[in-house]
């Protein structure tokens, strides 16, 4: 079936089974490979994207359910001020080890900071605990979120 979805501000028309999760449309149809597959069950957060600015697990969202909602992925998150601050903080504090989860972490962190510009540790725990980092770079992810929050206030 034919679906038109808006990804990073650009409408894309795809002919695909409506049950196909957004994750696979992004990765294998639209060749946007920044969004990652980790569990296929909304357990790890590696596939996090924004749907109208809210973080969702794209492995659980069928393309037929997207409708007119705007999808934003890691490839375009740097077009927002908050996204830029988050990316800069991640680079500055040298957060990643393997790096595989970090796109999802950044999408969740950006959504958090957009909603809560000065998050507490509790806010960070609540917003980020759906994103697994197998290398356990949590200490630096937390510090980078606080660094990005500071940059947002400057």
């Amino acid at each position: 079936m034919q679906y038109t979805i808006t990804v990073n501000g650009v409408p894309h028309s795809v002919d695909i089974d409506g049950e196909t999760p957004v994750l696979w449309v992004l990765r294998d149809t639209l060749d946007l490979k920044g969004t990652k597959f980790g569990c296929g069950a909304a357990q790890c957060g590696a596939c996090t994207v924004h749907l109208n600015g809210l973080p969702i697990r794209s492995c659980q969202m069928p393309i037929a359910a997207v409708g007119d909602a705007a999808i934003t992925t890691i490839e375009a998150i740097g077009q927002t001020k908050v996204g830029q601050h988050v990316q800069a903080a991640w680079i500055d504090l040298d957060v990643p080890q393997c790096g595989y989860c970090q796109a999802g972490q950044i999408m969740s962190a950006t959504a958090l900071l957009t909603r809560v510009p000065a998050p507490t540790d509790h806010d960070i725990n609540e917003a980020m605990s759906g994103n697994v980092c197998r290398c356990a770079t949590y200490t630096r992810i937390r510090a980078a979120i606080k660094r990005a929050a500071e940059a947002g206030r400057a």
Binding site: D31, L32, K33, G34, T35, K36, F37, T73, I74, E75, G78, V86, Q87, W90, I91, D94, V95, P96, G99, Y100, Q102, A103, I106
Partner: peptide, 23 residues
Amino acid sequence: KPTRNIEVPRIVTGQPMFGIDVS
């Protein structure tokens, strides 16, 4: 000297670089 990982700018912008990204 503390030396940053040169791959991080690519990681945080979602560039294809992992095995799963090969095409």
